[in-house]
Design a protein around this nucleic acid. Structure first.
Lengths: 332, 332
DNA sequence: CACATTTGTGGGAGCGTTCCCACATGCGGG
DNA sequence: CCCGCATGTGGGAACGCTCCCACAAATGTG
């Protein structure tokens, strides 16, 4: 344990060259073929590996990207993390994870985000992410919002075209003959979710003969269950339900069944995201698929461009999604 | 963008002290109250934040812990990541995430684990983690295995007492009168899962009148579905099924229903983990709860002890779990 | 054959910290 | 009054790398 790790100087000594030559081998410069071979061989013997910390200090690049994300209970997020991890790896970056729970967590996270010399930050938190984004912008740290939007439209970001998606679902349900519609909304701080609820409501209200009621599901299990239960019971109960996330829709399905209503027969239920478990036999949830691969790739591209120093057009890129019909809305 | 971040020297100049004094404020040394105030004020004005990279270079501590974990589709893992993140945060560490998919991914990950001067590594990958563990050991990097065991018992680790858990499930099913039992096993590289299958089998075979058949579920959706379908059909189909992970059990539930068998009435199905969604109404899966909070806390403690330089007793700590009875095994 | 040009090389400063050491103070006791 | 001894302080080396610059050797040109 006491034998410290070998340094570039050690390798240089063994190979009979200068440490500059060693550096050139690993940082990509010109070295004669002969010297390169000797250096690589020496490095192999000593088990040398360049110290990334020291390297970062001079190059001012850490190759570390921070990812801030809300609690991973919503299965859609782990999938996003996985894809993001791959995309970042392919682009030569490592991922430092920051899991937040609510707003209180955000400030210490922010502190660390800035204290560590991260090359960039991806904000996939559902709440209050814009505030963090503004601070990054101010500190000159490249930043991208993913699956969320900055109300002030200053932080660059990428998300699904929430409006088009919610509208398509609304039209589908209206076309299916539904006139009493319900929305299980998320927290107000999440603009992406708010956009979905608003767009859905707008279409229904424009129809004239249809009505829409909204209950807040708070992005939580109990919240969604309670909201759906409320909307699905009483004298003017709804016949179709739009939950702004699949995660909440799963609890709406449970609430419906608890009331003796079979989704797809007695009530139509839609989610949003296309969470991987939506297609499971137990749920078969109709939803709107976010183009996750494309979103992730775009976000990483946008971030990489900023890191390269390219000024970015501000604002949010909105990618097209796709409605996915499954059993839970089959009779609509 | 061009105005570089302020350094400790900048702060020292503004406060009229030396950079040593500034360092003392942030690294925790003795500074007179008056000087401290002036420094803090100057830092506030300049928006100074110590550069962690430079700090790491001298202290040889990065406060970065690497977490290697297999694909996050199994919901149990995101939960683990979340808890681990919190525990590491509380202990003053940040988490660098490495998501692996199969064995091929492991070598490049290992390279990066060692190249980055991580203070320690947590291996929660289900497969081949021991190999990576050995290499860390060799390189002198503190390492802990979580929810997995090293067959050679050299890498310290913590997991649930898989044997006791699987045995308890087996006895419960035998006591319930089941005589034709089935196991949906995982991949062979995962020793933790193998332990469960083996312990279950041992108890059943010791019974004398009961038989047990095993099919490999490969930890995958399709694999588990196929394995369960096989076990639940044919002339000598099983009446009780033990899946070595909840994730696979969800597909066993689906397979059973697809065959017209209602879990908890026509067939008993057990998982292992107590994945958060096991308790959902759509599943109500009987299972064995891993003491995740305790496991995570123990793993972080063990890692921190190694980082402090304490030699650790080798081998795996096995924590007690708890059987959780739910509808899927109610008639047993 | 003198000179420019290419090619590879080593020396050394610098990145922003920490930490050791030397050195000023202020103060009480011999 | 001078010595010891706390108590703060600043200077400067060190961490392991990159990268600029100067320079040597090999090659090409008039």
């Amino acid at each position: 344990m006491n034998n410290r790790r070998p340094t570039g100087t050690d390798v240089a000594r063994l190979a009979g060259v200068s440490k500059s030559a060693v550096s050139r081998v690993y940082a990509g410069g010109f070295v004669s073929e002969e010297a390169r071979e000797r250096i690589v061989e020496a490095a192999r013997i000593l088990k040398y590996r360049p110290n990334n910390t020291a390297r970062s200090l001079t190059t001012n690049r850490s190759h570390l990207i921070g990812l801030a994300i809300t609690g991973l209970d919503n299965q859609f997020y782990p999938l996003m993390v996985d894809l993001l991890h791959q995309a970042l790896r392919d682009a030569g970056y490592r991922m430092v994870l920051f899991v937040t729970h609510g707003e209180a967590d955000l400030d210490p996270v922010l502190d660390e985000l800035l204290g560590y010399r991260l090359d960039g930050v991806i904000l996939a938190s559902s709440s209050h992410a814009a505030r963090v984004g503004h601070e990054c912008l101010e500190a000159g740290v490249p930043v991208v919002m993913l699956n969320n939007v900055d109300p002030e439209d200053r932080v660059p970001g990428v998300c699904t075209d929430n409006v088009a998606g919610a509208e398509e679902i609304a039209r589908f349900l209206l076309d299916g003959g539904h006139r009493q519609l319900g929305v299980v909304s998320g927290l107000e701080e999440s603009l992406a979710a708010a956009e979905r609820a608003a767009a859905f409501t707008r279409i229904v209200e424009a129809h004239g003969e249809a009505t829409v009621r909204t209950e807040c599901g708070h992005f939580s299990e109990d919240g969604a269950y309670a909201a759906a239960s409320l909307l699905l019971s009483g004298p003017n109960r709804v016949t179709a339900l739009f939950c702004v996330t699949d995660f909440m829709a799963f609890f709406a399905l449970a609430a419906a069944r608890n009331l003796g209503l079979e989704p797809g027969r007695d009530v139509a239920i839609f989610g949003f995201d296309d969470d991987p478990i939506s297609s499971w036999r137990a749920f078969q949830l109709a939803t709107f698929r976010q183009p996750l691969e494309e979103m992730v790739a775009t976000a990483v591209d946008m971030l990489a461009a900023q890191i390269r120093g390219q000024a970015l057009p501000m604002g949010t890129r909105r990618l097209a999604g796709k409605i996915i019909l499954r059993l839970s809305a089959s009779f609509a």
